[in-house]
Design a protein around this nucleic acid. Structure first.
Lengths: 247, 247
DNA sequence: ACAAAAGTGTTTATTGTACACCCATGC
DNA sequence: GCATGGGTGTACAATAAACACTTTTGT
């Protein structure tokens, strides 16, 4: 029934070593990245046109093969770097997809990551060879993504939704200086529900992790809105004292 | 620097298909299982004696190789089944470990799962070939586990700690009939902090998901404690109405 | 002068937390 | 009759939620 079912590496104790697994089957392993950016009140995903039949031209997450000298994390980072040119990307592993026929043409095991990046500085610098463009999250369902990429995307967003409430990772999606309105809209977009302006500001500012700047943003209103900065050092201090970020 | 860095499957559009990845490197992939059981007020992990040098005799999580005809989930299930003889095991994927040198002797990518099982019915039935025994979670740190198994264990517990508060999975660790004291001790053990008896009962019972039975448990006290059952059907009903389990 | 977004506090409802005594029973 | 764990309610504190008007300034 299961050809290899009994070949657990724990099964038959023996003393011979190394390379004792040379006979075991092996698999192609790829990393697919849900690259997320926040643009004009909405969360966007960076997708590219899949270049291979039978899905040529369909939208897909960007991925890359794992190689012998790279870890999964490194592979993920490099995949995003190759496309965006960015260094210092915040990434997190989401899940590993290992169904036998998830890619019809062959067996591939794929680990999904999400990346949080700032859209603006990269908008014009995307490596043109990928034909990659940003898509608002709300319109992804119409796109007919490749393979199980819809499932990956869903899982990534679900995980982000949990994480963003307990860790200050939302700031990875905003420019260094941001307004309270931008921050709130970011959370509204990810949590997919409206948040009360006053309650939100109260809660965020009470954590005492934002530095209010003198400078005002004047793009979106005549009056202008104060910029704030996230104080990562202070966050680390607080962490050691047992502080818990929570929104 | 990176030998295969440019071989993203998204990189060079081309029309030839299938088997277009035949040239890519491939990897052994294993699944390691954090098998958890609740026994006498404490959470326990099922470990076995690692049979290979240079870690022969050390304690380790039980694992198994992925094979071409099995998904990751199936591999995990079967690994636990082989040891415990149990069917219908609740398992959940935790994380995939892909560091290049995490296993010194060769490159292996390993996906970690946790399994929640009921200890009692299996205590005497464990397949003897594995030399597996239960270890209280509180004493694991002294054991010098193999490879990165301590990291896996930590991640599994962390994930369980989050999940158990938002999903009714704790019941997988208890017999069908259990007392409120057992349930509370289970949560105390997993969350690693004492919980107020009255507040806990109030909150649990308010969800209206437990069926109180006539029968009493008389093992641990002279007075006896009422048994309860988790009502999975009612939980599914409530779920559809947007109900959220939370403890 | 008006349109458009920014800023600002108070009240109420909900939820969490702390806490102590009597009960039933087997020995 | 006493030791052991089971069962039960209330008061207070903390947190979350609801809610509307004034300010600034560019046009």
């Amino acid at each position: 029934m299961y050809g290899y079912a009994d070949k657990t590496f724990a099964r038959q104790p023996q003393d011979t070593v190394p390379e004792y697994h040379g006979e075991e089957p092996s698999f192609h392993h790829t990393v697919d990245c849900v690259i997320l950016g926040f643009h004009r009140t909405e969360l966007h995903v960076l997708l590219h046109r899949f270049p291979y039949k039978p899905y040529k031209g369909h939208w897909a997450l960007l991925g890359g093969f794992v190689t012998p000298e790279m870890s999964l994390d490194e592979t993920a980072l490099q995949t995003v770097q190759r496309l965006t040119g960015l260094d210092n990307i915040y990434m997190e592993q989401v899940y590993t997809f290992g169904e036998v026929r998830r890619v019809p043409t062959e067996r591939v095991i794929t680990t999904c990551y999400y990346a949080l990046i700032r859209v603006e500085p990269t908008l014009e610098q995307l490596s043109p060879q990928y034909q990659a463009t940003w898509h608002p999250l709300s319109q992804i369902l119409n796109l007919d993504l490749v393979y199980d990429h819809p499932t990956m995307l869903r899982k990534a967003i679900d995980q982000l939704r949990l994480r963003i409430r307990l860790q200050p990772i939302g700031f990875e999606l905003l420019p260094e200086k941001f307004t309270m309105t931008e921050l709130r809209q970011l959370y509204e977009s990810i949590l997919d529900r409206p948040l009360d302006k006053r309650n939100f500001n109260k809660k965020v500012l009470a954590m005492n992790l934002l530095q209010k700047l003198e400078e005002k943003q004047k793009d979106t209103s005549k009056r202008g809105a104060f910029y704030y900065e996230f104080d990562a050092d202070r966050y680390r201090e607080y962490l050691e004292k047992g502080f818990l970020f929570e929104l």
